[in-house]
Amino acid sequence: MQSITQACRDQGWPAEVAAVIANREQASGLEWAAAQGIPTRVVAHRDHADRAAFDAALAREIDGFSPDYVLLAGFMRILTDDFVRHYAGRLVNIHPSLLPLFPGLGTHRQALEAGVRVHGCTVHFVTPVLDHGPMIAQGVVPVREGDTEASLAERVLGIEHVVYPAVASWLAQGRVSLDDGKVAVRGIDDRCFGLAADGARAASHPSGGRA
């Protein structure tokens, strides 16, 4: 959330972060967002009888800001089908694996147990099927000898902070389209980002070049 907000302001996107909404009052991002002058709200799931009631309240709060897109970041709640359909084509999530590998929880443990040599993250549109929505972009990191879940998670987090702001900028610029379950991004030749073994970043740009 912080990376997206800072990139939006620093890079002059034709967009703004309308609000930051959490389901826990203790969410650290709320204090940071408020300090930036961004409206914040809390919709506590414990205050509602079931998931449907919570999702309905959450949707009412979101719709009060009339956003073009809803970006999930660290929101660890399974959303109801009605909520997902309400924001069809506008609800975006980041998942800490190279989907379709390792959906659900414990992705870094799964990657280490599987013995894969690369791991990463996926930004995708949300559908009623958990972690299976149309993919917009992916970020790739190496899995190193001696990696633990913690060390791998830290490396993946680094590439998440590259990929998600990039996707948010494409959305803000109207570059992303979703047609019949397929994603197209205009002006972007490569939607895969990587962190090299020495930590140097390689990322796609609208020109299709790399830096």
Rank of each mutant, 00 (worst) to 15 (best):
S3T: 12
T5K: 00
Q6D: 13
C8Y: 05
R9D: 10
D10P: 00
Q11L: 14
Q11G: 06
Q11V: 05
P14A: 11
E16L: 05
E16R: 13
A22L: 07
A22H: 03
N23D: 15
E25G: 02
E25P: 06
Q26C: 11
G29Y: 09
W32T: 11
A33R: 00
A34G: 12
G37N: 11
G37S: 09
I38K: 00
P39D: 09
P39T: 14
T40L: 11
T40F: 09
T40W: 08
R41C: 08
H45I: 11
H45L: 02
A49T: 14
D50I: 10
A52V: 15
A53H: 09
A53S: 14
F54Q: 02
L58F: 10
A59L: 12
R60D: 15
E61R: 11
E61P: 00
I62C: 03
D63A: 13
F65S: 08
S66Q: 14
Y69P: 01
L71I: 15
L71N: 01
L72S: 03
L72M: 12
L72H: 04
A73S: 15
A73I: 13
G74Y: 11
F75R: 03
M76K: 02
R77K: 14
I78T: 12
L79M: 13
T80M: 12
T80Q: 05
D81L: 07
D81S: 15
D82S: 15
D82P: 09
F83H: 06
H86F: 03
A88F: 06
A88P: 04
G89Y: 12
I94N: 02
I94M: 11
P96T: 04
P96M: 04
L99E: 00
L99F: 08
P100K: 15
L101N: 10
F102I: 03
G104K: 12
G104C: 06
L105R: 04
T107S: 13
H108G: 03
H108Q: 14
A111K: 01
L112G: 02
L112T: 03
E113Q: 15
A114K: 06
R117E: 15
H119C: 06
G120L: 05
G120R: 01
G120F: 07
V126H: 07
V129W: 07
L130T: 08
L130C: 09
D131A: 09
H132E: 15
I136M: 07
A137Q: 05
G139H: 13
V140A: 01
V141D: 00
P142C: 00
P142W: 07
E145T: 08
G146R: 06
S151L: 11
E154P: 00
R155Q: 01
V156E: 00
L157W: 10
I159H: 01
E160S: 05
Y164Q: 14
Y164F: 12
A166E: 12
V167D: 05
A168S: 12
S169D: 12
A172E: 00
A172K: 14
Q173F: 03
Q173P: 00
R175F: 02
L178A: 10
D179Y: 00
D180P: 00
G181N: 13
V183R: 06
A184L: 08
V185C: 07
R186V: 07
D189K: 15
D190S: 14
C192S: 14
G194N: 06
G194C: 11
L195E: 01
A197S: 09
G199T: 05
G199N: 00
P206A: 04
P206M: 10
S207K: 10
S207E: 09
G208I: 09
A211K: 01
